[in-house]
């Protein structure tokens, strides 16, 4: 029933990279899951047990149509209703920058999941910087909206995100930065347009 979206998902480099970090038959929660294509992809590739969360009516219908278990709720209100550490991975794909409560969402991801996986557009990408220097808000494949109609609230660069992780005592286990489907290892904060991270809660140091 979801072969079509899986076929489309095959072309998503970010999905393929996420799939490399996910254990077969594990349990995945996808926050802001859209039409459920990532979960359908992971289900078909890796037999994961997946659940999506989305607040949008159209996305809810798309997920149901695609045979994806979906819970309609607003992420901003937290993940009450999901037990602590009840998922192997909690995924937030291209959604963090649109959240009001950025820290709260990250905290909830690592309460409910043993690991978090996140993707976001890198605001520090050189094409974005050039547009800013030319006096305009950046518009690109990963930031397709104009400043006046964007859902994005909290855009950040790769360096900004890593600074927040450090502040929140989040340990980054993996990072891949890509541009137009290719992995970027040299000056990723300048040359990469999309960042993909896997991370987990580090133990807080014991203070005396």
């Amino acid at each position: 029933m979801s072969t079509e979206i899986v076929r489309e998902a095959e072309n998503r480099r970010d999905f393929a990279l996420i799939a490399e970090w996910v254990q077969p038959k594990s349990k995945v929660l996808d926050l802001g899951c859209g039409d459920g294509s990532l979960l359908a992809f992971l289900r078909d590739k890796l037999e994961v047990k997946g659940y999506g969360v989305d607040k949008d009516d159209a996305n809810l219908l798309a997920c149901i149509s695609n045979g994806i278990s979906v819970i309609q709720m607003d992420l901003e209100a937290g993940l009450a209703g999901f037990d602590s550490l009840s998922f192997d991975y909690v995924v937030l794909s291209q959604t963090l920058q649109a959240m009001v409560n950025t820290e709260g969402v990250l905290r909830e991801m690592l309460r409910v999941g043993k690991q978090g996986i996140i993707t976001f557009p890198n605001f520090g990408y050189w094409r974005h910087r050039i547009q800013l220097m030319a006096g305009h808000m950046p518009v690109s494949d990963n930031l397709p909206h104009q400043w006046y109609n964007t859902p994005n609230l909290h855009l950040c660069t790769i360096d900004d995100f890593e600074a927040l992780c450090a502040k929140m005592n989040i340990r980054i286990t993996d990072r891949i930065v890509i541009n137009e489907g290719d992995t970027v290892s040299f000056m990723p904060n300048l040359l990469g347009s999309l960042a993909i991270y896997r991370f987990e809660q580090a133990a807080w140091p014991i203070s005396y």
Partner: peptide, 21 residues
């Protein structure tokens, strides 16, 4: 309804939940 959904999720059952405006 969310209480029911929570209990179903705890059991890892296939469940979808719609909150209709």
């Amino acid at each position: 309804s969310r209480e029911i959904v929570k209990a179903l999720l705890d059991n890892e059952f296939a469940v979808s939940y719609a909150e209709v405006t």
